[in-house]
Amino acid sequence: MREPLYTPGAGRVPPELVGRDAVLERWTGTLSTARGAAHLPKDVVHTGPPGAGRTVLLGRALELAAGEGYRVLRVDGRPGAWLRDALAPELATLGLRLDLLDADETAALAERVARLPGFLAEVLTDLAGVDGEGRGLVVGIDDLHLVDPEEAGRLGVAVELMETPPDAPVLLVATGGPDTWERLRGDGLRPVNDHPEKWFDLRPLPALSEEEASRALQRPAERVGVRWEPEAVELVVATADGHPGRLQSAAAAVWALGSGTDPVTAAHARQALRSVELPAP
Results as ranks from 00 to 15, higher is better:
D241H: 12
A256T: 15
E90Q: 15
L73H: 04
W181Q: 05
V75G: 01
R78A: 14
A256H: 12
L273V: 12
R219S: 12
L278C: 04
R112Y: 03
S32A: 14
T7M: 13
G53N: 01
T239L: 05
P50T: 10
S209R: 15
D241R: 03
L217W: 02
E122R: 12
T30K: 14
R84E: 15
A207F: 13
A251N: 01
T33C: 07
P41N: 07
G59L: 11
H39C: 08
G51W: 01
P196C: 09
V224S: 09
P8A: 04
R183P: 08
A256S: 15
R183A: 08
D143P: 05
D143E: 09
E182M: 09
A81V: 11
R74S: 12
W255A: 07
V226D: 00
V123I: 11
E160R: 11
Q271N: 07
P263T: 10
R215Q: 06
L57A: 03
Y70I: 09
G176M: 04
P15R: 10
L62Q: 11
G258H: 06
R12I: 15
P14S: 15
D102P: 04
D148N: 06
V113H: 04
G134E: 06
V44L: 13
G245W: 01
G176W: 00
E212Q: 15
L100M: 15
W255L: 11
Q271A: 03
D102N: 13
T265P: 08
R84N: 07
P117W: 00
D43E: 07
F200Q: 02
V113S: 09
L205R: 06
A37R: 10
L58Q: 01
L208N: 00
E231W: 10
E197P: 01
D148H: 04
D194E: 05
A174M: 10
V147I: 15
A128M: 10
E133G: 12
A66F: 05
A121W: 00
T93Q: 09
A213S: 14
G188M: 02
S249I: 10
S249A: 13
G245Q: 00
V276G: 04
T265R: 14
L116Y: 05
A256R: 05
D143F: 14
R154S: 10
L116A: 12
V264N: 08
E16Q: 09
P220A: 09
A22L: 10
L202R: 07
H195A: 14
D167R: 09
L57K: 02
V123C: 05
S32H: 15
Q248W: 06
E277I: 11
G177I: 15
E234T: 07
A240R: 02
V44H: 04
A34F: 12
Q271C: 11
